[in-house]
Design a protein around this nucleic acid. Structure first.
Lengths: 149, 149
DNA sequence: AGCTAGATGAACATCATTTTCATTTGCAGC
DNA sequence: GCTGCAAATGAAAATGATGTTCATCTAGCT
């Protein structure tokens, strides 16, 4: 909870600096986001927040996500289904591996891959600004006689 | 043109095998796709094809893209804007580097990165099924006195 | 040439996301 | 602690890509 409070406070000062307001709704959404350990979409965030304050509207969630994103407080990702999913940004850079069967999202990071990407871009005459890397995989089955299940 | 004809013919036999028909519209769209050296979206394909046959409808483009994709004749990609873009599939696997300034899409491939991805997935206990890798970069400025422009 | 299931075009449906607009509310200054 | 006003909100309507319906058409077998 202290962790959550710290994030909310951090964000409040960011907003202040940008001449924006810390509203009930932003506080609420930020709390939901900070407590999430998955990658919820707008509707998912709305559902969780709505449970705590049924006056919240979905429009406000979308608007708030934009503000949060432009302040760098969250990151937005769109996996294969094209729907935007969000996660708070105060963590190390990482990419995602998506379990094809369960939809579970697993975070990982690899300096080797980061470096390789930079080098590839450079070889093509580009400075790498950002990238998107998603791996789609299926849980390895334990080896057994007769091969895979 | 021979190349295009070959692709059209190839696809026609694929369709036959699946009990589907080779229509004027599919032929037209396939031709547009085979002649494209970029990554057009549905509207872009529609525009080009419509110029050759103004009876074509956008619905048919969307429907045809689905058929083409399910037959493995094309690949669909959605970059940052979320819009589906298409390219014919009879080429080596590759990833994309997008020029942030111009929107230009550059294809590249790297065995090293493919291998690294496989290894990372394996370390997480997964078999890699597919992946999405996009690099977003900016053209390197030639070095000059005083630094960057 | 005729038949029939698959394909098309036009209009409408969907779904995520954005915008409009009237109303509410942070919060700066008193 | 009150006031004013610009920023923020809620509800509903708009948007834009994509999908679907349905009456009509046509590819391709016979």
């Amino acid at each position: 909870m202290t962790e959550v409070d710290r994030r909310v406070a951090d964000f409040e000062s960011q907003l202040k600096g940008a001449g924006l307001r810390m509203t009930q709704q932003r506080r609420l959404i930020l709390r939901v986001l900070a407590e999430a350990d998955d990658h919820p979409d707008a509707k998912g965030i709305f559902t969780r927040a709505f449970a705590l304050d049924p006056t919240l509207s979905l429009s406000t969630v979308y608007r708030t996500m934009k503000v949060l994103e432009s302040q760098g407080a969250i990151e937005r990702h769109a996996f294969e289904d094209g729907i935007s999913r969000y996660e708070h940004a105060d963590q190390e850079h990482h990419d995602h591996l998506i379990d094809i069967d369960s939809g579970e999202v697993i975070e990982f990071s690899s300096d080797a891959i980061e470096e390789l990407q930079r080098r590839i871009a450079a070889e093509l005459g580009y400075d790498l600004v950002r990238h998107r890397l998603e791996l789609y995989g299926r849980k390895k089955q334990p080896a057994r006689k007769g091969g895979r299940k």
